[in-house]
């Protein structure tokens, strides 16, 4: 498989080949070449099956890392192709022309992360949400619990105690000073 890594590196400046298992590897490519790489992988290297597309919010680095997982059923090998795009105004090429289901993933990316794939069909329609007016919820700076607490009423009357603090209050309250 290392030949593939080399070819990818030569043709598309790919780097960081990592062999996770004997049937799974990952590699990073420049975001601008996503469509080229995937088309090449699909047509030339036999990675015909797109398992899924997703993104990781690497908020510390200020990027979304896209993951396209493709599979070559003949060699029984899966490849995770990573591409970093900046978090502000994230845009990436659409691959809906390569795979028919890709537009759904891209619609999901748009709704869940705010990642735009120009040209992808129905990308601006709501996917799973309805009337969502917050940050895209899969971004790490969206706090699910805080939103839930603020929006959905909880049944009152719950109270809990920390064993250590409770024992301290019960057994040696004088130590608290």
């Amino acid at each position: 498989m290392n030949e593939l890594a080399e070819r990818l590196a030569r043709r598309y400046d790919a780097e960081g080949w990592h062999e996770q298992r004997k049937d799974l590897a990952s590699i990073s490519i420049p975001a601008l070449r996503v469509r080229d790489v995937l088309a090449w992988l699909r047509d030339e290297e036999g990675y015909k099956h797109l398992s899924f597309i997703t993104a990781i919010d690497n908020i510390e680095r200020g990027v979304f890392t896209l993951t396209y997982t493709v599979r070559n059923h003949d060699t029984k090998h899966s490849l995770m192709v990573h591409a970093d795009i900046i978090r502000e105004n994230p845009v990436v090429d659409s691959v809906h022309l390569l795979w028919e289901q890709a537009w759904t993933y891209q619609r999901e990316l748009k709704e869940w992360f705010g990642i735009d794939c120009p040209g992808s069909p129905r990308k601006d329609e709501e996917f799973v949400l309805e009337g969502w007016d917050q940050l895209p919820m899969m971004r790490r700076d969206f706090d699910s619990l805080a939103y839930s607490n603020a929006t959905y009423a909880e049944r009152p009357g719950r109270v809990t105690h920390d064993p250590a603090a409770y024992m301290k209050a019960q057994l040696y309250p004088e130590a608290d000073q």
Partner: peptide, 19 residues
């Protein structure tokens, strides 16, 4: 339906249906 269940911290599920 009673008090949010395991989705108590989810942004998309209500916690009490009786509301």
């Amino acid at each position: 339906t009673i008090n949010g269940g395991m989705y108590w911290d989810s942004y998309n599920t209500i916690k009490r249906i009786d509301q």
